[in-house]
Design a protein around this nucleic acid. Structure first.
Lengths: 199, 199, 199, 199
DNA sequence: AGGTAATCGAGACGGTACGTCCGGTCTTAGA
DNA sequence: TCTAAGACCGGACGTACCGTCTCGATTACCT
């Protein structure tokens, strides 16, 4: 039985793969999403266009892979100091800081655009990029729930979205500054919703 | 001071303007954002491309105008039954419903993409489309604050983003269903954050 | 019986007419045929486009009028010194000189292009610009025929074309220099054909 | 020395090249020069516009190539029966016939227009299309000169233009019919100029 | 002298083609 | 077989002009 068989991954050039992902991220930072084209990526990476199309479905998939690689590099786990507020500060602050930086958030912006255009990609983004972080926060909140720091009737899926949603909203629609104070305020507000009075 | 001049708005064809905005919205609903091209809009509207470029900077601006027109048509004010929870349900439920409908949310999707690609447009979207609604909700919350239904120390800008943020996050990243129950839960969670116990 | 009546020529602005013809000739000299557009003529002349279309059928007609004006200014008659060779030199030399000058011949070039594209215009060009000169030369040749300086069996229509044809051919196809010597040689060759031995 | 490079001719699609040249000639015959557009050629040939622009500078260059191809196919040589008049009849008659046919002369008309608009193209037309024929006639005249059928002092470059010039003049300016009699008369007149009495 | 009809400058309009850019596929040569 | 390179077909881009049309504002005639 001959397999339907796309390209053979064992023969894939790791060198090209890295060059493509690097080129994509660089171009995003340097010139922005509208100038990010497959041709530009291929040229910058010193790679044929076909090599991109052979392994990715489009530029959204390339960016997703680039960020997946980066995400794997950092620790996806949550700290647990015992104090849920402290731990949430620790996770939200750097996220806000990244979104506040136009250069660093260029990839997020690009991926959001692709996500809004492509349903299949959206699911990949959710499962491969967002889920790990959301689950880590959820786990931490569950622990807090067991420690009676979070009301028992709080739906934890909604809880994590209550933390990340306002932040992304403000980022997307530029309704206000993405400062550290803002990050802390969001955490405080969310914790109030979870039944924790401010310290 | 030499005026920048540009085309003379008094000679603008209202007929063409309406045809273009209508065509843009129709096409978005029928074929989606990636297939929405200036050429298609012009063809559908029975208009020369130049007539679009003369008055708008690109398709983002066209969509923005189309939605601004539509937004002006509907009442941007909030209900005020005296009960803040009831009133928030009334505003959040239809918003969630609209986002849940692929056809109705096509324009939101398109505008979000443009917003993420174009800083100048983002500000227009914020000021002309979002602000009126956000301000209306904010006003309603301020009244609730005066009626001691919302804690006095709650920052109202953050408050409205706490309501809308999670909803848009779930819409963009498809992290869960956009049901009426969800809409109500978001309101309940936010009200808890604002210091209102569940009924 | 109401006349079909186009525009009323008595109300025509002579000022605009001259400005248009002048602008057309200037533009031809400065930028060449490909840049000669109705819009450019109108802008240069400080005239509305409609004023051009009201009085001319297109740019070919404008150029034709411009040259007709110029042609009327110069004397269309032939000299008659009694010596046909001398007289032909006198008529051919300046014609060659004009064709040799890129600036002066820009209008001829433009008109030739229009002539090749538009049959109706071609007839106008022939009758209003060429015919007078051709007829003048023909008349002079007829006189020479009577004076036995030209063979009686020479068809005079062919004779004049034998004089002008080679010149225009060389001008169009750049097969050789358009010098005064060349002009004289053409005359000599033609006269040989007409039965006149070189002096 | 950095090579100017441009596209690699070894990878050029012969299929597309032929389709483009064929389409151009067909369209010229069917619709005329003003309706001959790059877009129409591309559409008819089933080719992307870029494929035309990659290899040609514009429609003039395409037509030139199309005719060069056709010219190579026919024999560019002159007959030599020993009698120069007979041989010139043989070459001039079909040329006049072609110019007299609106369909067949469409390409000549188009090329003449381009020649008048574009100096660089004019030289190509002269060297690649006209020269071979002019040279062939010139060679034949030279042989006639050696055989004392043409006066020794006749400049052969001028001689060939004396043959072709009047014909093109009459074609361009429509000063008379392009019949076979006319063709013969031109030859007879030219031969008289060359010192050959009519038979 | 005032009314009125046509021309005028200006430029927006519906269109068509331009020449460029890029998407995604296919072909070639080399490793 | 995969790769770099890049030609290919297709199609949208944003621009330039086309020829028509709609505006006041002159302008010249005609009561």
């Amino acid at each position: 039985m001959p397999s339907p068989s796309g390209p053979d991954p064992t023969r894939r050039s790791e060198r090209s793969r890295r060059a493509i992902l690097t080129a994509a991220v660089e171009l995003l930072g340097e010139t922005g999403y509208n100038e990010l084209t497959i041709e530009a990526i291929a040229a910058r990476a010193g790679v044929g266009k076909q090599t991109i199309y052979r392994w990715w479905s489009g530029k959204g998939a390339v960016i997703l892979d680039a960020l997946s690689d980066a995400a794997l590099a950092v620790d996806a786990s949550m700290p647990d100091t015992g104090d849920i507020r402290t731990d949430l500060y620790a996770i939200i602050r750097p996220t806000v800081a990244e979104l506040a930086d136009p250069r660093l958030s260029a990839t997020s912006r690009a991926l959001s655009i692709e996500t809004l255009s492509d349903e299949a990609l959206a699911e990949q983004v959710r499962d491969r990029l967002l889920r790990p972080q959301l689950d880590a926060v959820k786990d931490r909140l569950r622990a807090a729930q067991l420690a009676d720091q979070v009301r028992a009737d709080v739906d934890l899926d909604q809880a994590v979205e209550l933390l990340f949603g306002p932040m992304y909203y403000r980022w997307m629609f530029r309704t206000g500054p993405l400062s550290q104070e803002y990050a802390d305020d969001v955490v405080d507000l969310a914790l109030a919703a979870f039944g924790i009075a401010r310290a």
